[in-house]
Simulated assay, not measured.
Amino acid sequence: MKGLSAAVVGIAVLLAAPGLAAARGGSGGDDTGDGYEVGVEVVLTGDGAPGDGGSYTISLPPVCWWERLDGRMLSDGSSVDAGDPEAVLKWYEEAYAAINGSFAFAREMFPDRSVFEDAIAREAAGTDLTWYQVRAGDAGSVDDMAVCAPEVKNLGGQYGEIPVIYWPWVDGDPPAPAVDPETLAIEAREVMVIDEPEVERNPRLAGALDGATFVNVNTWFWVVDPEMVGGDGGTRTIRADVVGADVWAEVTATTDGLSIASPNGSRRCDPELAQQAWSPGSADTDGCTVAFSRASVAYPGGYPVTAATEWTATWEGQEQDGTTVGGDLDPLRRESTVNVPVAEAQTIVERVG
């Protein structure tokens, strides 16, 4: 079957006009160097969506897409206009007859002749139609083309399933490119909004020891925005729905909390603890506290303290045919660094505030 699939793809390429990155009914595509990509309109939602969510166009490598059937030649040397159903019918008749012998099965890539005749009738009745072809990249497979195909013919036996890759659509409005939901999830992960953890702390002295805390005093750290640690549940989500298709992907990022790291004193706190701001009378066990055991005399600006969140990422989604899929993605990390002066205390210290 692998050899047969390659033969079908090869015949499809031979029947195609040159130029993989031809225009897709006006929406276009780009050869990025890593492969063909198309602009896909998606709607982003969730608390991790940029801005207030909404519609965005993102560039993705498609599984398959539709290109105008321009550039085909008739035996008399004339070029076929994809917007002329009668000319396309003539090209079909010549191309169909040319596929014979051991490759005759590839005739099934064409729809029935009645589809060509119906296109002529619809065009005459006032519907502006254009013929398109499914493309799946230079390395595309029969299975890839089948994702976009309006019909798949099951020939059985050694031939298996053959996708119909030619079809008339309203001019300029072919179906949206089919994208892999995992690829969509990866893109959604890339644009997911998770802010760097900005922290406040106490003690934070004024005067000559501006901003300082003290040796062996529990210093509280907390995030200024609960969403920096995903709220109490420690999660952020973003969902991408492809406009005009049933493909979607949702990414969930989960953190186990806030880590505070310095050359002298570190701590990891769960999301709930990381949100607790110090207030008079608070017990140190109620907050994310770090005790520095030495003064920061070797660090003129104070100890560099890094506040960081690590996020695991999982995704779930739906393919074009309704199949549900999902898995794991690369983790995310957000961090920020502040300088914390640590001074020796010779007297009893009272909290600030």
Rank of each mutant, 00 (worst) to 15 (best):
K2S: 11
L4S: 09
L4N: 05
S5Y: 06
V8F: 05
V9P: 01
V13H: 14
L15H: 05
A17F: 05
P18Q: 08
P18L: 11
R24I: 08
Y36L: 15
Y36D: 12
V38R: 14
V40D: 04
E41K: 12
V42T: 09
T45F: 08
G53E: 11
C64I: 00
W65V: 13
R72S: 12
D76L: 01
S78P: 00
G83F: 01
D84R: 05
Y92K: 10
N100R: 15
G101R: 10
F105M: 10
E108H: 15
E108Y: 14
P111I: 11
D112R: 04
R113Y: 01
F116I: 02
E123C: 03
G126L: 00
G126P: 10
T127R: 07
L129V: 03
L129D: 00
W131Y: 05
Y132Q: 08
V134E: 06
R135N: 13
A136H: 12
A136S: 15
A139S: 15
A139M: 12
G140Y: 14
D144N: 13
V147K: 11
C148I: 12
C148R: 07
A149G: 03
P150I: 00
E151F: 02
G160F: 13
I162S: 02
P163G: 01
Y166F: 13
W169N: 03
W169H: 12
W169M: 00
D173H: 10
D173F: 06
P177K: 10
V179S: 09
T183C: 02
E187M: 03
A188E: 12
R189S: 13
M192E: 02
V193W: 03
I194P: 09
D195V: 00
P197W: 05
R201L: 06
P203D: 07
A206T: 15
G207D: 12
D210N: 15
T213F: 05
N216R: 11
V217M: 12
N218C: 04
T219M: 07
T219W: 09
W220Q: 09
W222C: 02
V223Q: 11
V223L: 08
M228K: 12
G231P: 13
T235P: 10
I238H: 08
A240C: 07
V243M: 04
D246H: 00
V247G: 00
V251K: 07
T255N: 03
T255D: 03
D256C: 01
D256M: 02
S259E: 13
I260H: 01
A261V: 15
A261M: 09
N264G: 05
N264P: 06
L273C: 03
Q276A: 08
A277M: 09
S282G: 05
T285G: 14
D286K: 09
C288V: 01
V290Y: 05
A291C: 09
F292T: 08
S293I: 03
Y303V: 04
Y303F: 15
P304V: 07
P304M: 09
A307Q: 04
T309I: 04
W311P: 02
T312Y: 00
T314K: 10
E316D: 15
T323W: 06
V325R: 14
G327M: 10
L332P: 01
R334N: 08
E335V: 01
S336Q: 11
V338N: 01
V338Q: 07
P341Y: 01
P341M: 02
E350S: 15
V352K: 13
